[in-house]
């Protein structure tokens, strides 16, 4: 099998997550070539062909042009699989490439199960294995699902791609920085997070009290932040903060993929959930099957003794 790996580049730098594509290709035992819309000083340290298009001309986010560059590399390389990260860049670009090639696309692959691609269904409460029916396939892989071993040390063989026509129907204006972080959860030894299961905004104080009793910080899942119960700077997950504390306590959090990706490197995970089958149980060292509003105050009281 031959893979074409679409690397990511943002704010003048190659994104480290690009190496996860390499880990995925290695896991498949596949040959690999790469595509980067970036610059020569920032190419991945990987042996193999790298198709490089100049970011000064094609922008960091001009998906119609990036699609054309990927298609040009596909023409030259004739890969079996074109692989993206399931990221804001990859999930945006992959379907455009798939539709243009009329290639079957598999989104957010979490593992390879007996040679088939495994993906989540219903917030990862079920799983599916899927099989593309087309000669070429487009794949996106879950962030963090394929781990990179060791420091990269290869040297890419660069071939430049330049298109005669570089008009984008979409104008990329620039970036807006993330909201200023009031708290750096990444530094906290303990993070206690509130999920939708806490029920209402007033109950967040009960979760915050447990965080305080454990000498830690309050975190939250996305729905709680979107509902305005907790400020965005405390959101744990792919669009919030990635944390790896000594102790992570998930209170009423079902364990959506995007949340788990932000906390699964925690040393010890306690989940409190009334649903024994909640996917958070997959990453929990201890799953307490209980109503959060009954269990958490009792735990806080015990710790304060």
């Amino acid at each position: 099998m031959k893979t074409l790996l679409i690397c990511e580049y943002r704010e003048g730098k190659l994104l480290e997550s690009s190496y996860e594509l390499v880990a995925f290709a290695d896991k498949l035992g596949a040959e690999k070539a790469m595509v980067l819309i970036g610059k020569e000083a920032e190419v991945p340290k990987v042996n193999g062909k790298l198709y490089l298009a100049d970011v000064a001309k094609y922008g960091e986010y001009k998906p119609d042009l990036h699609k054309k560059i990927v298609l040009e590399a596909v023409k030259k390389e004739d890969p079996d699989a074109i692989v993206f990260l399931h990221s804001s860049y990859g999930w945006d670009l992959a379907p455009r490439v798939a539709a243009a090639l009329k290639a079957g696309q598999v989104s957010e692959i979490v593992s390879i199960n007996e040679g088939k691609f495994e993906v989540g269904l219903c917030n990862a409460k079920l799983r599916r294995t899927v099989t593309p029916q087309t000669g070429k396939m487009v794949l996106t892989i879950q962030a963090g699902a394929f781990n990179v071993a060791g420091d990269p040390q290869g040297k890419a063989q660069i071939e430049k791609i330049d298109l005669p026509d570089a008009v984008s129907p979409l104008e990329f204006v620039g970036y807006e920085p993330a909201q200023k972080k009031e708290v750096d959860l990444a530094r906290a030894e303990v993070v206690v997070s509130a999920g939708r299961g806490v029920g209402k905004k007033e109950n967040v104080a009960i979760i915050a009290a447990l965080a305080k009793a454990l000498g830690g910080e309050l975190g939250a899942s996305r729905p709680v932040v979107d509902a305005g119960w907790v400020e965005h700077s405390r959101q744990v997950g792919t669009t919030g903060q990635i944390v790896a504390p000594k102790l992570y306590v998930a209170c009423g959090i079902s364990g959506a993929i995007q949340h788990v990706a932000g906390m699964k490197k925690s040393e010890f995970v306690v989940a409190i959930n009334k649903d024994k089958d909640a996917p958070i149980g997959e990453v929990a060292d201890v799953l307490v099957v209980a109503d959060v509003m009954q269990f958490v105050p009792a735990l806080t009281a015990m710790l304060q003794k």
């Binding site: 986010y61 990221s87 804001s88 860049y89 979409l170 104008e171 204006v173 807006e176 920085p177 993330a178």
Partner: peptide, 15 residues
């Protein structure tokens, strides 16, 4: 405004 990883946003204009 597109939401990117880590809460950064990309601002784009489309006709």
């Amino acid at each position: 405004k597109r939401e990117l990883e880590g809460g950064i946003r990309a601002v784009v204009k489309l006709k």
